[in-house]
């Protein structure tokens, strides 16, 4: 009996766990572990924000930050939106949300439009000094906000726009032009010059070529510019707190005033709800346009 088994050659270790396979699995495990940690890092705060915003104050004071609410209630949201006291008025965030929209939407549209036209002119209609203009615009990206606070404040006062939504729109448009111009100019460089030439011979002018031929080729870069600008302008705090007054303050300023007020009990559930409201527009924009964003960021990298 034993002799026969000895005679049979043992099959080589052909089990499913070869060293090579084990290594691959280990790699996978490490990868997923890292991804899970990163996901937790970003999703954790969002979870706490959301779950706390649906709790009542007694439940919050009882502790248990990580638990889901026992009796979910939307009361904190109602308060944050319409009743919370910010400064001396108690009308909630809704007015400031409106301010932010009134500021961000025109500022984004105007800065993206101007950036697109600038980028198109710089990339496709070379004029003497174009390189210098572009270099100056690029340098504009690196001017720190703090440096310009005082001059801008004087300028806005002179223009009579200090403390108004229009003033904020103006400064955000000006500050957005360098980055949008750079973005569009670099994208438009990849548009073949022959297209422009053919259109010129066909009788189209500067703006016709721009709207009929160049822009239809650029949805991805437009989305990138829109997202970048909207996120930047919506989340801006420094310009907002420097150049607005209580009636024109955007969300970021209102949220800060709400959360940092020193009166009475800190209503964490209201603060959390308010924070989610403040973050919602940029989140929604990413969710809706995120795939175009990713496509836009890599466009031109692969296509030869």
């Amino acid at each position: 009996m034993s002799t026969s088994t000895d005679a049979m050659p043992r099959p080589a270790r052909s089990g499913w766990l070869t060293p090579r396979r084990a290594k691959a699995i280990l790699k996978r495990v490490v990868l997923y572990l890292l991804l899970a940690i990163v996901a937790f890092f970003f999703a954790g705060p969002l979870y706490i924000l959301l779950s706390t915003s649906f709790k009542t104050m007694p439940e919050i004071q009882a502790g248990g930050l990580m638990f889901l609410p026992h009796e979910p209630t939307a009361q904190a949201w109602v308060t944050a939106w319409g009743e919370a006291c910010i400064g001396i008025t108690c009308g909630g965030l809704k007015g400031y949300f409106g301010n932010s929209m009134m500021m961000a939407v025109p500022a984004v549209l105007i800065s993206v439009m101007i950036g697109a036209i600038n980028g198109y002119a710089l990339a496709k209609w070379p004029f003497p000094g174009a390189r210098f203009v572009f270099a100056a615009l690029v340098a504009g990206n690196f001017v720190p906000f703090q440096v310009v606070l005082a001059p801008v404040s004087v300028t806005l006062r002179t223009l009579g726009l200090f403390g108004s939504v229009e003033g904020l729109i103006l400064i955000h448009v000006i500050y957005g032009i360098p980055i949008t111009t750079m973005l569009f100019r670099n994208f438009f460089l990849s548009v073949p010059n022959d297209l422009i030439k053919a259109a010129r011979i066909d009788g189209a002018g500067f703006f016709w070529i721009f709207f009929r031929i160049v822009l239809p080729l650029s949805p991805s870069v437009i989305v990138v510019a829109l997202i970048l600008q909207f996120t930047g302008i919506w989340n801006d705090f420094l310009f907002a707190v420097s150049f607005s007054n209580p009636s024109s303050a955007p969300m970021t300023v209102a949220l800060n005033n709400l959360v940092n007020s020193n009166f009475g009990v800190k209503e964490y559930n209201v603060h959390m709800a308010a924070t989610v409201i403040a973050a919602a527009p940029t989140l929604i924009l990413y969710i809706l346009l995120g795939r175009y964003f990713l496509r836009g960021m890599t466009a031109g990298a692969v296509k030869g």
Binding site: P192, D194, L195, K197, A198, A199, R200, I201, D202, G203, A204, R212, I213, P216, L217
Partner: peptide, 20 residues
């Protein structure tokens, strides 16, 4: 005179058709 006012038409090596 601008190209459009010269009464010419041009065919390019890259075809230069409007892609959209």
């Amino acid at each position: 005179v601008e190209p459009k006012d010269r009464d010419i038409a041009m065919v390019f090596q890259s075809y230069a058709l409007y892609p959209t």
